[in-house]
């Protein structure tokens, strides 16, 4: 496997593994993501909830989509991010990677809960029921349980490096659920419709309905980058409080 022998990671990859470096770069990037998130979510919400036209069949209840779809997409993306950073932590022994993974847990669980709740509220007027045990809904509920398990495991172990490794393995194995959620509506008969948002396929709705949704999705991605950076930087300050640069940073403030 010669490609594997010669394969190496770029320099920035190792630099981000340094808590001090991550703290500084993250601090510089954070305001941009914050501004982008606030601007796009405000714009997308106002447009989607107030100005986008009502649906020809569902009327105004379809507007729940502007919260439900981003929440559902993000809940899965955060899970993948948690698993990938966990994998990096395991293989390269980077504690910053474990800190990022730890920061993802609660945010991801909240987005999953939001997706399930908005879905139930939407399901009552459109389907006629809050909940049905179809493959899409059930696999998403399993993801919420996986998040809860990851959070509980991470909290239960006091040693940060052991906790990081244990939760990394749980989240890596848990990613098998992600393709199941994604393709559930294609593999099996479900009550849930197929996806209405895809970067590769043609939109399933006109532009005045689609652009606010796009704004919400991109805005929510910015929001989680901002939140994960913030939480990871707090985590760095807490875990590296013995380091001299942290003391200097806190004094300067």
């Amino acid at each position: 496997m010669s490609w594997f022998e010669s394969w190496h990671m770029p320099r920035w990859f190792y630099q981000m593994g340094s808590p001090k470096w991550f703290f500084e770069i993250g601090g510089r990037l954070q305001p941009w993501f914050m501004v982008a998130a606030i601007a796009m979510i405000t714009w997308g919400l106002l447009w989607g909830l107030l100005y986008a036209p009502a649906d020809y069949q569902q009327g105004n209840s379809f507007r729940i989509m502007y919260v439900h779809v981003p929440a559902a997409i993000l809940s899965q993306s955060i899970f993948v991010m948690m698993a990938v950073t966990g994998l990096i932590g395991l293989v390269w022994k980077m504690k910053v990677a474990f800190m990022v993974a730890r920061s993802c847990t609660l945010i991801g669980a909240s987005f999953t809960a939001l997706a399930l709740i908005t879905g139930a509220v939407w399901g009552k007027p459109t389907w006629g029921t809050y909940w049905v045990w179809d493959a899409r809904l059930t696999s998403t509920l399993i993801m919420l349980f996986l998040y809860t398990g990851v959070i509980a495991l991470n909290q239960a172990i006091a040693d940060r490096s052991i906790a990081g490794r244990a939760t990394a393995i749980l989240s890596i194995v848990g990613t098998i659920n992600i393709p199941v959620i994604k393709y559930s509506v294609e593999w099996w008969n479900t009550l849930h419709q197929s996806s209405s948002f895809s970067l590769t396929a043609k939109p399933t709705m006109p532009a005045e309905m689609y652009i606010p949704l796009l704004l919400m999705v991109v805005g929510c991605y910015s929001l989680i980058v901002w939140l994960v950076l913030q939480r990871t930087r707090n985590e760095i300050l807490d875990q590296e409080r013995q380091a001299s640069w942290v003391a200097r940073y806190l004094e300067e403030r």
Binding site: D55, Y56, Q58, Q193, T204
Partner: peptide, 17 residues
Amino acid sequence: DEVLAKHDENYMPPEVT
């Protein structure tokens, strides 16, 4: 004893329909 509506992934304003 129970009928649920299954809707598709297409959304349209009423004027378009």
